[in-house]
């Protein structure tokens, strides 16, 4: 056997009280994962943002209106993962060695069933072939492959960084890597250190302890998908709104 220890289950804890909604995580993610700039015709619904910061409002009028920002990427569901079972050709897989929900764009044939299945809207279909301004393709990250139109892609906790960390460990003759050796781009780029990342299987890790904090919540917890992305907030209204999902109906018709 190659592994004689419990496999890590990577997870993320995001402190929404610290998030300023600056968008660093979104652009750092795009840089890291070779996500191209938007096609001129792309919209909020056809653009590709593996990490997307959404605004959650308390629903009160000005000036009592308050909001927090929720950076939502793939929630890396641990159980009943909605997208894994639906893919007809195994392009989506739960990676038992890291707990990451893998999306393999070269296997995918773009049926978009997984996009439909994901309640977190974390999956993105490539409506266009990727185009970078001339020369900018030199800035692509060699640890991540570029994708073509017609396939689905999503956050994989910057798996290229995990592979690089594993290769470095292998060069040093190690089979395991420490939490600090592997941090996704969003966590690294967060200027307020709102994004914590680490191994949820290790009870002593930063994320394990934070995930058990009383401020912690997850999105759509009752669906039973056991997301590995947690959020922290001290504000009661945030918890209240997250629990009562359908209450946003009054927001009305959206095209965004």
């Amino acid at each position: 056997m190659e592994t004689n220890h419990t496999s890590p289950r990577y997870g993320m804890v995001i402190d929404v009280d610290r998030c300023t909604g600056c968008g660093n995580c979104m652009v750092a993610c795009a840089v890291e994962n070779n996500v191209p700039p938007a096609d001129p015709k792309a919209t909020e619904r056809t653009g590709t943002t593996w990490m997307r910061v959404s605004k959650l409002e308390n629903g009160l009028p000005f000036p009592e209106n308050r909001s927090v920002y929720l950076p939502v990427s793939c929630q890396q569901c641990d159980h009943h993962t909605p997208c894994v079972s639906v893919c007809p050709q195994n392009a989506v897989e739960y990676d038992t060695e890291s707990g990451i929900v893998a999306q393999i764009p070269v296997r995918c044939f773009g049926c978009r069933y997984c996009v439909t299945a994901c309640p977190y809207h974390a999956r993105y279909y490539n409506w266009w072939d990727p185009v970078w301004p001339e020369g900018m393709e030199k800035t692509l990250n060699p640890d991540v492959s570029t994708r073509m139109r017609g396939v689905v892609e999503k956050c994989n906790f910057c798996h290229g960084r995990l592979q690089a960390a594993r290769a470095k460990a292998a060069a040093e003759g190690r089979r395991t890597i420490a939490d600090a050796e592997y941090v996704p781009a969003c966590g690294e780029s967060c200027p307020t250190h709102a994004i914590h990342f680490g191994n949820l299987s290790d009870p002593n890790s930063d994320v394990s302890m934070l995930s058990k904090d009383k401020r912690a919540f997850r999105l759509l917890e009752e669906l039973g998908t056991e997301p590995k992305v947690y959020f922290l907030s001290e504000q009661d209204w945030v918890h209240a709104i997250v629990k009562n999902k359908i209450s946003t109906e009054l927001k009305g018709h959206g095209n965004g």
Partner: peptide
Amino acid sequence: RRHVANTCLKCHK
């Protein structure tokens, strides 16, 4: 043969 995991992410990026 070597009992190494064959998960997608083992090799694909």
